[in-house]
Design a protein around this nucleic acid. Sequence first.
DNA 1: GGCATAAGTCGTCAATTGACGACTTGCAGC
DNA 2: GCTGCAAGTCGTCAATTGACGACTTATGCC
Lengths: 225, 225
Amino acid sequence: MEAKSAKLRSEKPRNGNGGEGRLPYDERRAQILHHAAEFFSEYGLTGQTRSLAAACGVSQRLLYRFFPNKAALVREVYQETIIGPFRAVWLAQLTDRSMGVEERLNHFYRDYFRTILTRKWLRLFLYSSLAESEMAPDYIAAIIKDLMETITRETALEQGVDLPDDPDVLHEIGWTLHGAVSHFAIRRHLYKASREVPADRVLAVQIAAFVHGFRAMVETAGEGS
Amino acid sequence: MEAKSAKLRSEKPRNGNGGEGRLPYDERRAQILHHAAEFFSEYGLTGQTRSLAAACGVSQRLLYRFFPNKAALVREVYQETIIGPFRAVWLAQLTDRSMGVEERLNHFYRDYFRTILTRKWLRLFLYSSLAESEMAPDYIAAIIKDLMETITRETALEQGVDLPDDPDVLHEIGWTLHGAVSHFAIRRHLYKASREVPADRVLAVQIAAFVHGFRAMVETAGEGS
DNA sequence: GGCATAAGTCGTCAATTGACGACTTGCAGC
DNA sequence: GCTGCAAGTCGTCAATTGACGACTTATGCC
């Protein structure tokens, strides 16, 4: 029965998938990873391999040529999409004392907001945090801790404020700003709210509260000791 | 073959379920809703009805005596667990001018943090936000808007600061504090971080930044107009 | 004590879903 | 032009999962 095969062929002008022909191993693998990041970010880590394959314009079976199982695929997406961008977090500009702290913070958070706190990153991060997959939070946690410490110390230095000894309190002071910014991103990308005021302006306001409320924060933090 | 039935009976001292006998309709329904809130909060809205039934100590079939399908059950859990507590949000104390704004904010956010921003509430809220089920965000959004406006106006009044006309900017100013607090709750309950410093102290620090950075925030917000 | 009725369970169905063996097809090198 | 191998698909399997018809059992009431 070649007829059926021939007929099928005639319906697909060139090949079975979306629009590009066969790809070498590495390219196809990269393309799948790219689509998978988008896909799992939107539909969650429980998204089905068949839908993902369809989104890639590829048969479901093909996924298993590149990844031993779904969990491995998800793990790699996480590494590439969540951990990957974090490597690029740049602390140097935060200690560049030729600028004032407020200006430095504005530069940094505009960058951070646009690079890291994207819809894709946030949704994927939240999905995996909720699933407690605990894929690699330590690496990110360590970087953020550094970040909180740098921001707090630089601000204290500029303002001649004595910081408390407890490093945890110090981190929480930094988190006041970082949390406000992160939640702003969650509002925008998850709840689809807080979209009227331009992002840069919102960030500037949040940074102003941090910088100009800094001394009061440190004093308040010291009261309970 | 009564024998088999009799033998089975002897293995379960009293009845087929966990430990309580048969319950009247309303009680059983309430009990299922209670377990379901816990269950979906932990395992997500895709959690399986069989596991839920097991957690309730009840057969899976019984769930369908109370709810036409899983979606309806989830919807009711959401109403009860997410929307329900929000009705109780108390704005009166925020306008009680016999106290200073900073003290009022401390009272309010201690309450809010403990009542609303629980692990159960947050996880459920995030799961449903991610799923875009859009179950009833408008109601909550409206209350929060009120809240942001009240907080901002009360602070401005106390400090004799002129607020900008744009109501969206006004809300964003309030969100600086509310976002910092919300993200603190997410860190605690979701990421299991930020647990070293007592919650009340962290809240006090965040409120201090808001109150003492308020004038600078408003000035920064007004610059771009 | 027996019976009506609500409370509760059993077993099963169809659809979904991750996984994979067996097959087909395009293309590079001769 | 043909052949060998990598790229890609088909069809299927077993487990899972929402849903539900048919049945069983406890309990209050006479």
